[in-house]
Computed example of a mutant assay.
Amino acid sequence: MLIWLALLIGGYGAMLAYLWATQESRIFFPRTLPAERADEIVQQIAGARHVWIDAPDGTRLHGWWRPASPSTASGRVLLYFGGNAEDVHWRLGHGDGYPGWDLLLTDYRGYGRSGGQPGQAQMQADALLWFDRLSAGLEGLPAPSAIAVMGTSLGSYYATHLAARRPVSGIVLATPFDSVRDYVQSRLPLLPVRLILRHPMDSKSDAGAIRAPSLFITAADDKTIPPERARILFDAWAGQPRDWVLVPQSNHDTVSSEPLYWESLGHFLRTLP
Rank of each mutant, 00 (worst) to 15 (best):
Q120P: 02
R49M: 00
I225A: 05
M123Q: 12
A220F: 04
A146S: 14
G170T: 09
K223Y: 09
G140H: 11
A212M: 06
L272H: 09
P189K: 02
A159G: 14
I41T: 11
G82N: 11
W130K: 05
T22L: 00
G170I: 06
A35Y: 10
V77A: 08
I196Q: 02
G95P: 02
S135T: 11
L141N: 06
R242W: 02
T22P: 00
L173A: 12
L265V: 13
W244H: 05
W4I: 12
I171G: 09
F234K: 01
S257I: 00
A46P: 03
W262F: 09
L269H: 04
R242F: 04
K204A: 15
L105V: 10
L129Q: 11
P70L: 05
N251V: 09
L5R: 14
A121C: 00
L129W: 02
V42R: 12
Q43C: 10
R109V: 10
E258F: 00
S71H: 12
Q240F: 01
V193R: 00
R76H: 13
L272M: 10
L190V: 08
V149L: 10
S250R: 04
A68T: 11
P248F: 08
S135E: 12
S205I: 14
W90E: 12
K223D: 14
L265H: 07
Y158D: 07
H94P: 01
G100I: 06
M123P: 00
A55I: 02
P67I: 07
R37V: 14
S156H: 11
R165N: 11
H267Q: 12
P99Q: 04
A55M: 14
E139Y: 01
L8S: 15
R49Y: 01
S179W: 05
P67Q: 09
D87N: 13
D235E: 13
A143S: 15
G95V: 01
V184M: 09
L188Y: 14
G63P: 02
D202C: 08
K223L: 11
